[in-house]
Amino acid sequence: MTDLRAAIGMFFAVIGLILTAAGMVLPGRAPLENANVNLYCGAAMLAFGAVMLWLAGRGRRSG
């Protein structure tokens, strides 16, 4: 089947993009937290997704 890393990477990249966008567009803050949680968590998930996609791509090239 398609590399599981690619599926996981794609999932977190998409979620990361949605959260990052929400962090930039929506003014929403949580009751006890002033930081822009969506932006930071979104960026972290985007990075994790990118690493998984890179690993999947590397795996495909090497066979």
Partner: peptide, 10 residues
């Protein structure tokens, strides 16, 4: 208390 909409969904 700590997650805004978006992260709350996650």
């Amino acid at each position: 208390q700590f997650y805004p909409s978006g992260m709350l969904g996650v």
